[in-house]
């Protein structure tokens, strides 16, 4: 298909200027006026030639007036004859005129057809690219789920269970962390590394979120509770990611990956070079009640979002 289109485009390289010229002369005001002017110039030229010929004839026979002057009424007669001759010529050549018109229409049609096909293919490619960008930007991924086990109105204590999404396993970890805290507006705090839109749009990077503590409306963040979820090897689940989720990291050097992320946090230049546009702490929070189930998401356009989990 690509080869055919390439061949047609090459063909259109010389067809297009010709087609554009035809379109200019037959569809634009300036073109039509130009054609009419050309026709008038042609008629005037022929008329002038006929009158001059007639004038020479008069001179030759030494006629009335002696100077070879053609009488006014004869000039009108010559003009009428010239116009009718041109008209009759057109009529008698109708098949040729028609063939020329068909040829011109064919050239224009062919050129426009190839152009349309080329535009169609280019648009299809653009749609594919835009869909891919939209898909990358519109993506969100889960970070954690929080189950509110209890809230005591008298003591204002909230009990909750947290499960983290394990990116190496592509699912929630079986390990959980139970937390009890004063207050019922629960803040879920994390370090966020947001990449440039261009990195996300091209699919070469995803925003990274490293949850690290819980606090509340009653407990300041400095006295928040640290999240201690670790896998069986003692590796924090929050650092576990698929290789493709982290920028320029080798598959088997896990610690290097963590060090790489940490260096982005502390080294502004390195972070910029890696395409990170912002690093900061971000806590999403919600006033909770017993039985609530919350899900925390990372938005690819930046930041965290918390929502009540949908129950089927």
């Amino acid at each position: 298909m690509d080869q055919t289109l390439e061949f047609l485009n090459k063909m259109n390289w010389f067809l297009k200027p010709f087609a554009n010229l035809i379109i200019f002369f037959f569809t634009t005001k300036v073109g039509i006026i130009s054609l009419i002017v050309l026709l008038i110039v042609y008629i005037l030229f022929v008329l002038n030639f006929e009158i001059k010929t007639r004038s020479l004839a008069y001179k030759a026979v030494g006629s009335i007036g002696g100077g070879g002057r053609v009488p006014f009424f004869e000039k009108i007669f010559i003009a009428g004859r010239v116009l009718s001759n041109i008209f009759l010529k057109i009529i008698s050549n109708v098949p040729i005129v028609l063939a020329v018109v068909i040829f011109l229409v064919f050239v224009v049609g062919m050129s426009k057809g190839i152009e349309s096909m080329d535009n169609y293919m280019k648009n299809q490619q653009k749609i594919k690219e835009l869909k891919s960008i939209l898909k990358q930007l519109d993506q969100r991924y889960k970070v954690a789920e929080i189950d509110i086990l209890d809230y005591n109105r008298l003591t204002e204590q909230t009990k909750m269970r947290i499960r983290f999404y394990d990116y190496a396993q592509q699912g929630f970890s079986e390990q959980t962390q139970d937390i009890e805290i004063l207050g019922n507006d629960i803040y879920f705090d994390a370090i966020v590394l947001n990449f440039e839109y261009s990195e996300i749009a091209s699919g070469s990077a995803k925003n990274i979120v490293l949850p690290y503590r819980i606090f509340s409306n009653k407990v300041p963040q400095g006295k928040g509770i640290a999240l201690k979820l670790q896998d069986k090897n003692g590796v924090p689940l929050i650092f576990k990611r698929k290789e493709s989720d982290i920028y320029t990291v080798e598959p088997d050097v896990y610690t290097e990956r963590i060090q790489e992320i940490m260096s982005y946090i502390t080294d502004k230049k390195k972070a910029r070079a890696a395409g990170i546009r912002s690093i900061y702490g971000n806590a999403v929070h919600k006033t909770v009640r017993k039985g609530d189930k919350l899900v925390i998401w990372v938005e690819q356009t930046g930041g965290l979002v918390i929502k009540k989990a949908v129950v089927f």
Partner: peptide, 15 residues
């Protein structure tokens, strides 16, 4: 419905 709080802050130990 679906409202929530969203807070941003600096992190003393890292940035």
């Amino acid at each position: 419905s679906d409202h929530f709080g969203n807070m941003v802050h600096d992190i003393q130990k890292v940035k």
